[in-house]
Nucleic acid binder design. Sequence first.
DNA 1: GCTAGCGTTGAACTGCGTTCATTTGAAAGG
DNA 2: CCTTTCAAATGAACGCAGTTCAACGCTAGC
Lengths: 198, 198
Amino acid sequence: MARKTEARRKELREALILIAERTIAAEGLSALRARDLAKEAGCAVGAIYNVFGDLTDLALAVNARTFHRLGADVAEALADAPTDPVEQLVVMGQAYHRFAAANHNSWRALFDIERAPGEAAPDWYLAEMGRLFQYISDPLAALFPKHSAADLTLLTRALFSSVHGIVLLGLDEASAGVPSDDIDRMIALVLRQFAGSQ
Amino acid sequence: MARKTEARRKELREALILIAERTIAAEGLSALRARDLAKEAGCAVGAIYNVFGDLTDLALAVNARTFHRLGADVAEALADAPTDPVEQLVVMGQAYHRFAAANHNSWRALFDIERAPGEAAPDWYLAEMGRLFQYISDPLAALFPKHSAADLTLLTRALFSSVHGIVLLGLDEASAGVPSDDIDRMIALVLRQFAGSQ
DNA sequence: GCTAGCGTTGAACTGCGTTCATTTGAAAGG
DNA sequence: CCTTTCAAATGAACGCAGTTCAACGCTAGC
């Protein structure tokens, strides 16, 4: 019986993640509703809470998948990139932009989850973030061989944050959305200027 | 009679803005509740809706004030800054950081308001944003006299977004908050590197 | 079959923003 | 003054969320 239950829960868990993923992608994080989920999954509302602590946990599970896809996209872009470290940075920045634009709602959900104050980010979040940072810090280490590890960490964070900021404000239609080409141009501008000048 | 009513509404409007401002500053945007507001203001819940269309309108009124304070802080920092354009950019970036850190909840509320899809940002938002952009584009124009106006606009946006991204992720405690000094260092790094190397 | 006990269920609870039938009170007219 | 009138203020009620838990039903072991 323990087996049966566990298997059923696992099945429900995965079904719920898929439905939530589709909902968030199509209508955004705020469209995630317990009753709608239950109806779509063909289960009771309470069943959701047998499998996830609350809806935020479910959204976090979706975010883990989104973050993973993002990482994969960036890695793929990097694989096809030239060997020049500066160009690698530019390619990755623009891959980040492409992912955010193509998965706007899902990407926004990564940052829109209300975090309980004082609560640390989940492990997978930090791990995935670390993976992204590694992609950035490798070309930077090649560009700045003299810098200390601490300096490289700071540089990495600064560049990631800069690209993130450019994409975030660029895609925000409220501030009169910026054309996609302009976003790519800004990313290239900042990264080339930064890393190009030794 | 018309006078009396109008005066009372204006008074209530301002009282509500002050209470909401205090609430948002102390506990964040999500702590804004109609019933609490009414209790604090000594009015009926319905009275709020005689003065504001909904709670979002009230939050926007608070945001207008916050944005104005932010602009004033940056302008003040600029007034005390050296004449070197690069240093002016650095000083402004760090003033932005200081404001965000010292007014975390209020600053976050500027970007956390759920915007109706397709709805443009309010005029005051665009106007205040334009003021900030002007502060940035002036030193940039001095640094890059050869660039076209369109290029300067792009540069301005790119640098603002970069600083915003650095502050946003740096202050986000979920991703293991970055020490304040490191944030300042990253801002200086990006801006000096960018603007310093002609 | 029977029953003990655990997993599932969905009605009910709480708390939110928002509305609107009712009440109130101020101004105009007698 | 008192009465009439009507717009503005009121707060109980509504709709809609997330979450809970007493009751139900299924399954496994006898």
